[in-house]
């Protein structure tokens, strides 16, 4: 075999082109071949998160679909500007980046009782955070919550996905006594509760004040956007 001059200009350009084309095809092939499986995983994961907000946790992957269908009665989509339902759309299919125009709203039934689920997104310390808050049919008492995050610090902010934190919201009230306009439910640092009623707050994650503040803002912001829908359900 003749010895190629691997340092020539032509060889370098051709080599770079060939490598890039091979890699591009390879990546495109892998990405499109695996896309359906990945999408199915993402959908199952989302369903598990919604179920977790109803305190139904640890559902097997294969059983998630059936459980979700059994529990979630309606997944509505409201317009962002008015309390009108957009007909023919499934709230589950609304991606979080469309939350500005559309408001997905889930109605579930657990042990014969109606529960309402409000999805929400916000910002943590390093990246996005999101969550689902499930309310009892009085539209005021928290039934359960689920929070997760993109890239909060492992062991600190990332602990908002842990059950003890999410469970601490159970039974808390959205509104303080005598004021049913502003959302009072808060995440506050231990020792900074002030005069708040214990019904209205949970303690943040120790050492993760900024992530906890993010959850606090997300809850207030997310729930106040749904106040008209929630009041209409009462």
């Amino acid at each position: 075999m003749a010895k190629l001059n691997t340092n020539g200009n032509l060889y370098t350009i051709v080599y770079a082109t060939v490598i890039v084309i091979i890699v591009a095809f390879l990546l495109a092939f892998v990405a499109s071949a695996l896309k359906p499986t990945q999408d199915a995983n993402v959908a199952i994961d989302k369903k598990q998160q919604i179920l977790a907000s109803l305190n139904i946790r640890g559902v097997e992957k294969t059983a998630t679909e059936a459980k979700y269908d059994a529990v979630i009665k309606q997944a509505l989509v409201y317009k962002a500007t008015s309390a009108d339902v957009i007909e023919g759309e499934d709230g589950f299919d609304v991606p979080s980046k469309e939350f500005k125009e559309k408001r997905p709203f889930y109605i579930a039934e657990v042990d014969g009782q109606t529960k309402y689920i409000v999805p929400m997104t916000g910002a943590g310390l390093w990246g996005g955070i999101w969550g689902y808050v499930a309310l009892d049919d009085d539209c005021e008492t928290v039934f359960g919550t689920y929070f997760s995050h993109e890239s909060e610090t492992a062991g600190l902010g990332a602990r908002i996905v842990e059950e003890w934190f999410q469970d601490s919201f159970k039974g808390k009230k959205l509104y303080a006594d005598g004021d049913d306009k502003t959302i009072a439910l808060s995440v506050v640092k231990k020792g900074k509760e002030g005069t708040m009623s214990p019904d209205n707050y949970v303690n943040g994650v120790t050492g993760a004040t900024l992530t906890s503040n993010g959850v606090d803002e997300m809850i207030k912001d997310g729930l106040s956007k749904y106040q008209d829908i929630l009041n209409a359900q009462k």
Partner: peptide, 18 residues
């Protein structure tokens, strides 16, 4: 043995990233 010397770092990076 086929990698052109001048762009070897780029090729390495492409392989790793892929």
């Amino acid at each position: 043995k086929t990698i052109p010397n001048r762009i070897r770092i780029i090729i390495q990076l492409v392989v790793v990233a892929a």
